[in-house]
Simulated scan of single mutants.
Amino acid sequence: MLKTNRILYPKGIAIQAKKFARYIEPNDTRLVTVGNERDHVYRYEGALNGLDDAVVLLAWKADQPMTPDHLSTDRKLSDEDILRYDAQRWTIKCFFRQAKDQLKLDGYRVRHIRAVKRYWAVVLFACVYSIAESQQDLSSGLELLRSRKEHSIVEFIDDAAKQEIPIDVIKKTAPCRLRGPLFVS
């Protein structure tokens, strides 16, 4: 996605994308259909801050006002391909947001490529396991597994109390039973 304050350089003049969009006339655009979606598209090819050669699609739904938002650095792609890739990218962005928020992907720091690959394997396993256990989506699966974790902790504390284990021993022992990125809440 392109931020609307991104600087474009049409004809060598620096201007924010949102301001540039105001100068685009309907006859400067073309109607593009991707799947069931119809968009008006203006294709800008040229420099951006930080990029010498990019393609920016200023695109908006056929029945809505203009909001510029599609960016590609591959000038060979057609407008349809850029919009199609952008639609797929949204699903990927949602997954990463969930992985960061719900699996704490952004809180784990590793430097070696081997450690990164191992951590990714654990995160992806947690995703697949959550989905398989719940037979639904990732959020539902994590909610189910977290509720199981909470029940396990309560059962552990209850069993320990029945055995008259001191509370300071319970505090030290209970968290060690259920650790790992899957169970981070």
Rank of each mutant, 00 (worst) to 15 (best):
L31A: 06
D39H: 14
D28M: 09
L51M: 06
A14S: 05
H40Y: 15
D53Q: 08
A160D: 12
G141Y: 07
L51K: 11
I7R: 04
Q16D: 01
M66T: 02
W60F: 07
V154I: 14
R109D: 07
R146F: 07
G107P: 01
F183A: 05
V169N: 09
F183C: 08
H151P: 06
G12K: 11
I7T: 12
G35D: 15
Y44Q: 03
S185T: 15
Q136Y: 08
T67Y: 15
G180P: 13
D106M: 00
L77P: 00
K19C: 00
R30S: 13
K3P: 04
Q88F: 03
M1W: 09
N49L: 03
E150K: 12
V110Y: 12
G46H: 06
L77S: 01
L103Y: 08
R89W: 00
D81H: 01
P175I: 07
Q88I: 00
I167T: 09
A21P: 01
R89C: 02
Y85G: 00
I167Y: 08
R109I: 11
S130K: 10
R84E: 01
D52I: 05
L142A: 12
T91S: 05
W120Q: 07
K76H: 09
R6H: 11
F125W: 15
R109P: 04
A174I: 04
W90I: 00
C176H: 10
D53L: 07
Q98E: 09
H151R: 15
Y42L: 13
K104M: 11
T4Y: 01
W60L: 00
L182D: 09
G180L: 10
L77N: 02
V169G: 05
V123S: 03
S72C: 01
S185V: 13
A17C: 04
D137N: 14
A47E: 14
D28H: 10
Q136M: 08
L105C: 09
K19A: 08
N27A: 13
T33P: 05
G141V: 11
Q135I: 06
L57C: 04
P65E: 06
P10V: 07
I165F: 08
I24A: 10
A121T: 14
K100I: 04
D158T: 14
I113L: 13
I13M: 05
Y119S: 05
D86W: 00
V41P: 11
D159T: 10
V122K: 12
V123R: 02
A99S: 09
P10G: 07
L77R: 00
E164W: 10
D168I: 05
P65S: 04
R43S: 08
K11C: 03
N27G: 10
R148G: 08
V55E: 04
V184R: 15
D159H: 11
A47Q: 11
K93H: 02
A62H: 06
D52V: 03
W90R: 00
G107R: 13
T67P: 11
P26V: 01
Y44L: 11
T91G: 04
I170W: 14
Y85T: 00
L145W: 13
I157G: 03
E37C: 09
K11M: 01
V122F: 14
E80C: 02
A126F: 02
A121G: 15
L178P: 05
S134T: 05
Q136R: 13
G12N: 07
E37S: 12
R89E: 02
M66C: 09
M1V: 08
F156P: 05
F125N: 14
D137I: 07
V34P: 03
E150L: 13
L8K: 02
K104C: 14
